[in-house]
Design a binder for these strands. Sequence first.
DNA 1: ATGGTTGTTCCACAA
Length: 265
Amino acid sequence: MKIATWNVNSIKVRLSAVLDWIREAQPDVLLLQETKITADDFPRFEFEALGYRCHAVGQRAYNGVAIVSRCPIEDVVEALPGDVEDSQARYVEATVGGLRVASIYLPNGNPAPGDKYDYKLAWMDRLLRHAETLLESEHPFVLAGDYNVIPTEADVYHPAGWVDDALFMLDSRRAFRSIVNLGLTDAFRALHPDRTRAYTFWDYQAGRWQNDEGIRIDHILLSPAATDRLIACDIDAGPRGRPKASDHTPVWCEVADERPGPTFL
DNA sequence: ATGGTTGTTCCACAA
């Protein structure tokens, strides 16, 4: 099963780019972020025409996440547990093809320090607790999306320029590490430990794409049971170089349908 | 230190 994640920065503007990429990359599941549209206005028919189902969680103008899948989308959870006051559309989780998957749009947190940074860290604490709950089930799961966290210095073109940014500040990185340290696997880094200049986001401003000055902030985290089935993972920078591109590009992984036997080793 | 860009909305804010 091929699972991909992509922050599209408005599904309305990006619809043809996303449909093109689906035709070309053939993911079984595509997790979207920053759709910037309500669930009612999500362009479901265009995805259904390609043989996919959709479950969108959204709001006007900001945020918005969705699950697009070839398999039925079952037992949907439309918000990250832990704060009934939080009305931002940043989380959707469901079972697809026997796997639990979540599309995550973690808060940006800038400017930091401040209210937005506090919200980011609180949101990450809720994600940590929820991941603990998911782990108790021992069911394989995939938490993928725009984490808005640069995990290490290897994941940014110029670390010194980012030390005061909420995406790279120590508490953000610590919180991300705590989530991974529950026993999850950063699929990309697990398979490409030494790869440099592996980015998923390049700012629209200041020629960042042209100069390959990016950051790796879109991540696929796998539970132990899902990690045992991990076959491949990569970043597809193709869509970032096309006209009317999102500032993010897709990340995908391939997970075996069955737990591999001895012949796999 | 500033400016550089894109999207949505209402004349700014978020990224």
